[in-house]
């Protein structure tokens, strides 16, 4: 998943605000699986008191992106969906950090 010209035009990062209950992740992953949408990466962190979470999805669905967003918005646990600008580095920064052998935090993670 090298950042390239091509991936910049076909990949999008969606930022979701979701209810944080035990089944939320299943609902979102299940939606991508049953509608055959491509899901390349997921990040999820609780927000504030933990009653909601923020989720970032790396999605390789250029043509069907509006449909992906509409289907996500239909899930009861999804509070909002926003497409991040192409300049967003959320996933790229993580990927390069973990690929860099000089990076000591990455090495720590594996111990």
């Amino acid at each position: 998943m090298q950042p390239s010209r091509e991936s910049q035009s076909t990949e999008a990062v969606l930022e979701l605000h979701v209810d944080n209950h035990a089944g939320t992740m299943s609902h979102i992953c299940g939606l991508f699986a049953r509608r055959a949408f491509s899901l390349e990466g997921i990040l999820c962190l609780p927000v504030g008191d933990g009653s909601t979470s923020r989720m970032w999805l790396q999605v390789r669905e250029y043509d069907r992106l509006p449909q992906v967003v509409l289907q996500l918005e239909k899930l009861e646990e999804v509070l909002s969906v926003r497409r991040l600008p192409e300049s967003d580095t959320t996933f790229r920064a993580l990927a390069t950090r973990h690929l860099d052998p000089e990076d000591h935090t990455a090495a720590d993670d594996s111990t």
Binding site: G23, S26, H27, G30, R34, E76
Partner: peptide, 14 residues
């Protein structure tokens, strides 16, 4: 049942 019913309901609860 919760897991089984995810894709076939509008909403499900445990």
């Amino acid at each position: 049942t919760y897991g089984l019913s995810i894709p076939i309901t509008k909403r499900n609860y445990l």
